[in-house]
Design a protein around this nucleic acid. Structure first.
Lengths: 359, 359
DNA sequence: TTGTAAGCGTTATCAA
DNA sequence: TTGATAACGCTTACAA
C-alpha cells in the first residue's frame, strides 16, 4: 500500500480523516457532526469549520457501501428519442423524486446485448432498483432480469409467469380500438404500418390488427400492411412503399412516430388527411397533438404505466419479500382531426379563417 | 456488529467470501479468478464452479470504492423532451460507449436547485464525470460546477473566464443567419418567438435578433416579439398572441419546438407557410424535418458539441491536471420548405400530385 | 500460485 | 458526548 493511512484520499481530496485531524477530534465525532447526529456545540463548531476550510465533500460510494443504498433509480428504455418514453419518464420521475431519490435514464438502443450489459452493470448495485421497458425479450434477457441483484420492474409484455413485477397494457386491444373507430367511420381499406415483427409490441400489434379486421369480417389485403421500425424515417418510408402499391382509405400506425411519418408521406403525395386517408397513431404522445392536422392516437397509458411501475418498485425496495405482481392499464382512443369522420378541421383548434392550406 | 464476518452480505447475497469458502480457497484467490488474473487451473475451476452455484454477482459499489472509478458518465439536461438534447445525447453516448463506459441521463427540468442537487449527489462520486447543459447559470451554480469533485464539462455559454471545460456555440450569430436569410428572401415584417429572457440562450437569442435587424436597418416592431418557454405549447400560445396583434411575414423561433408550435398556430389560423409567413426554427432537430412543410432551422451543432464535450471530459478524466479548455462550434442554416423563397413545396420531397392540401 | 492482511472512505457499535 | 475499532465487499501488495 505504500501510503500509510494518510488523511486525504488517493486523489488528494479531503476525507473524514482530514476533517477530523484538522478539528482535533476522532473520525467518529467528525462523521457524527457531518451527519447531524450528536456532537457537543464545541465539537460541532470545530468540525464544521474544518470541513469548510478543506472543502470536504463526502464520498457517496463509500457511504453507499456502508448503507447498502445509493438513492438512485434507473430507467432503461429503447429509444429516448421516442416521446412515449419521455412521458413515461416524467411520470416515473415524479414518483421517484417524491421518495427522495433520483432517476437516471439509460437508452439501450433496443439492442439486447446493450440492455443485458446494463443490467449486469448498473444493477450490480450502482442503483437501488431499475425499471426496464424492453421491446425484445429473450430467455437470456429474462434470466438476467429474474436474478438481478437489485429490484427490477418491467414495463411491457413479459413471458407468461416470469417472477418479475410487471406493468403492461393491451396493445392488441389498442389496435382494435383504432380499427373499430375507423370502421365505424366508414373506412374499409384500412392499412397498417408496423414496427419489426420480432419485437414484442410489433408482434402484438400485428396480431391485434388481424384479429380486429376479422372481427369486422373484412378480408385483409396484405398489400395494405407494411413494416419498418418504430421511428419516423422508417414510418415515412414504409408508408411510401405502401402507397406505391395500394390505395388505403385509412392507416393505423404502430406508434406516433410512425404515424407522423405516414402523415408526412400522405401529405407530400398530395393526399388529403383525413379526406382521402384517415390516420390513427398509437401511444398518444404530445407529438400527436403537435401535428397539423392533429393525429388521432390510441393511448396505451404510458404515463400511468410509468407511475405504477415506479410505485411497484418503491414498494419492492421497501419489502423485497413481496410476491411478484402484475398490473394492467387499459388502452383508450383519442379521436382528433386526422380521423374525424367529416373531414372537419381539428375541433381542438380555434376556428380557422379558411380551411384551405397550402403547405 | 452482531454478525461476525459471515460469508454473505447483509441482504443475504453471496460475496467473495461465500465463493471462497465454498471453493475452499482464500478470498484473494477467489477474487483473482473472478477477475481473470492468475490462479491455477484447479483453483480456477473450483472458484468458477462455486461462483456459479451460489449465483455470485460482484458488488460494483465495493469495487468502485477500491478502484476509485465507476465507469459511469452522467449527462444533465434541462428537458429531455426536447429533441435537441436527444441528438446531443446520442453523440455523447457514442463517444462514451467507445471508451467502455456507460452514459446516464438526468433531466433537471431546468430548475437550478435540481441541477445543483444533482451535482451535489451524482458528482459526489457515483459517476466518473458529467456533462451539464444548464440554461440558467447563477453564481451558486457556477461555484458548484467549479469545485465539483468529479470532472465536469459544460455545454453552453458560461461566464467569461470560469475555469471549467466548456463547449459553446454562437446562438446570437445563429439568429443572425436566420434573419439574413429571411431578409434576402424579401421578408421585412420579421417576428420573433423566444424562450424566457432570464435564461442564457433566451437572452442571447433576443440580443442576436435585435442586432441582426439593426444590421439590416429594419426598425423592430415590438409587437412582433413574443416570449414563452422553450416548449411546443408555449410556442404555439405565444404565436397565437403575436398573431392576434400583428401581421408578420416571417417568424424566427428560438428553437424547433417553438417553431412547430408557431407552424401549428399559423396553419390553424389559415395562414399559408411559407406563402404568407415564413418560419425558421433553431437547433435543426429531426423534428424540423418531420413537419409538413419541413422547417428551415438554424443548426447550433448540437451533435458536434456533444461529441466534443464527451471528448473533453474523457481527456480530463485521464488527466485532471489539464488547463480548462473552451471550444466553439459555429452555427449554420438549413433552408427548407417553410422559408423557401418561392413558396414551392419542400424540395426534399417527392413531387406532390397536387399542392392543395386540406388539413 | 497462494494466503494474510491492509486499505478504499464511510458509518455504526460499544465501552469509556 | 467521545474515541477506538469493526464492519461494508472488494482488490492488491507482500510474503510464503
Amino acid at each position: 500500500m505504500g501510503r500509510k493511512r494518510l488523511q486525504e484520499s488517493a486523489d488528494g481530496r479531503p476525507t473524514v480523516h482530514t476533517v477530523a485531524a484538522r478539528a482535533g477530534v476522532s473520525i467518529a465525532s467528525a462523521s457524527r457532526v457531518l451527519n447531524g447526529v450528536g456532537g457537543s456545540p464545541e465539537t460541532i463548531r470545530k468540525v464544521r469549520a474544518a470541513a469548510a476550510e478543506v472543502g470536504y465533500v463526502p464520498n457517496a460510494i463509500a457511504r453507499s457501501l456502508q448503507s447498502q443504498r445509493t438513492g438512485l433509480i434507473a430507467l432503461a428504455v429503447e429509444d429516448i428519442g421516442n416521446p412515449v418514453y419521455v412521458e413515461m419518464m416524467r411520470a416515473i420521475e415524479s414518483v421517484v423524486a417524491a421518495s427522495g431519490r433520483q432517476l437516471l435514464v439509460h437508452a439501450t438502443g433496443g439492442q439486447i446485448a446493450n440492455e443485458t450489459a446494463l443490467l449486469r452493470r448498473l444493477a450490480h448495485r450502482y442503483v437501488d432498483g431499475m425499471i426496464v421497458s424492453p421491446i425484445r425479450v429473450t430467455d437470456d434477457h429474462l434470466a438476467a432480469l429474474v436474478d438481478s441483484p437489485v429490484p427490477v420492474v418491467v414495463v411491457g409484455q413479459l413471458g407468461a409467469d416470469a417472477p418479475v413485477d410487471n406493468v403492461r397494457t393491451d396493445s392488441r386491444a389498442g389496435v382494435g380500438l383504432a380499427v373499430d373507430h375507423l370502421v365505424a367511420a366508414g373506412r374499409r381499406r384500412i392499412g397498417f404500418v408496423n414496427g419489426p415483427l420480432d419485437t414484442v409490441p410489433g408482434a402484438a400489434r400485428d396480431a391485434g390488427f388481424r384479429v380486429a379486421l376479422a372481427g369486422h369480417r373484412i378480408d385483409l389485403d396484405e398489400r395494405l400492411v407494411e413494416v419498418g421500425d418504430f421511428r419516423y424515417a422508417a414510418g415515412r418510408a414504409a408508408t411510401e412503399r405502401l402507397l406505391a402499391r395500394a390505395r388505403p382509405d385509412a392507416l393505423v400506425c404502430a406508434n406516433d412516430l410512425i404515424a407522423v411519418g405516414a402523415l408526412h408521406a400522405l401529405l407530400a403525395a398530395g393526399h388529403r388527411v383525413p379526406g382521402d386517408v384517415a390516420v390513427v397513431g398509437m401511444d398518444d404522445t404530445e407529438l400527436a397533438r403537435m401535428m397539423f392536422p392533429q393525429l388521432s392516437s390510441v393511448s396505451l397509458g404510458s404515463a400511468e404505466r410509468g407511475h405504477r411501475a415506479a410505485e411497484l418498485l418503491l414498494q419492492r425496495i421497501a419489502d423485497p419479500s413481496l410476491p411478484p405482481r402484475r398490473e394492467q392499464v387499459p388502452p383508450s382512443l383519442a379521436v382528433r382531426a386526422s380521423s374525424a369522420a367529416d373531414d372537419m378541421t381539428d375541433p381542438n383548434l380555434p376556428a380557422p379563417r379558411t380551411p384551405e392550406v397550402t403547405a
